Amino acid sequence: MAVDTSTRKSAAVAPAPGRPAKRRSSVALKIFMAVTGFLLVAFLYVHMIGNLKIFFGEESFDHYAHWLRSVGTPVLPEAWFLYIQRGVLTVAVVGHIAAAVILARRARLARPVKYVHRQKVQGSYAARTMRWGGVIILLFVIYHILDLTTLNLNPHGVTGEVYRNVAEDFAPSRWYVTLFYTLSIVAVGFHLRHGLWSAVRTLGLQSPRGEFYARATALVLSVVLVVGYLSVPFAVLVGLVD
């Protein structure tokens, strides 16, 4: 009795019914990560530029901090702009992390059998950097909020005296805070460098020339961000800001 092997073969390789939907879902998650990542990067740059006003002196820096609380008035009550901003950023951060966890889990389940010989290629190195960097950044954000937003961990901790809070926070005797801040910002730089390039690829960039410029731009933006943020604690450390 003859057996239709072509039918059996096609049935064996037929994709699972839910696989296309999961693939579309993964693409949507990657796009969501890219969009939220760009939003967070934009905030980081605006925040960095604001931090650099500390070099204009105590009065200018404290006035800038007070101005932030008045943005949107009288349409919005005082400080509502900051609360709205924090709410949006919180949603973006939580969503970004959740999407990353889901995608990482799907990637792990897609290859349940480990390779016998696995080369440590650039992709795996970048993935490990992103995972550990993300954990460090999350811990830093929590500490940073408790330190310079709610002031629970700040040695000065006086509302409205932002310049003095920063100066006391990074005082030479608190070198360990500066060290933790430095490691965290460097982690942000690595995360940003790979994240920006990955986001651009997710949004459709495929040409080798375009990838080269994307990598170069991501590197430059990351270096600028790291230098901009670290200039403040090191200025306090060496006495340029006191």
Rank of each mutant, 00 (worst) to 15 (best):
M1P: 05
D4G: 04
T5Y: 12
S6Q: 02
A11Q: 12
A12E: 02
A14E: 05
R24Q: 04
S26E: 04
V27G: 01
V27P: 00
L29C: 10
I31H: 08
I31W: 11
G37N: 07
G37H: 10
G37M: 10
G37A: 10
L40I: 02
L40E: 00
H47G: 00
S60G: 02
F61H: 05
H63T: 15
A65E: 07
H66W: 13
H66L: 13
V71N: 08
V71G: 08
L76P: 03
L76G: 03
A79M: 10
F81A: 07
F81W: 13
F81K: 09
G87A: 14
L89T: 01
V94P: 11
V94N: 11
H96L: 07
I97D: 02
R105P: 01
V113Y: 15
Y115I: 11
Y115R: 15
H117I: 15
G123C: 05
A126V: 09
R128F: 12
R131F: 15
Y143R: 12
H156T: 06
T159S: 11
V166C: 00
P172M: 14
V177R: 06
F180L: 08
Y181T: 03
I185N: 00
V186F: 12
L192V: 15
H194I: 08
H194P: 00
V200L: 11
V200H: 02
F212M: 14
R215Q: 09
V227H: 06
G228N: 09
S231H: 01
F234E: 07
L237P: 01
G239E: 06
L240F: 13
D242C: 09
D242M: 14
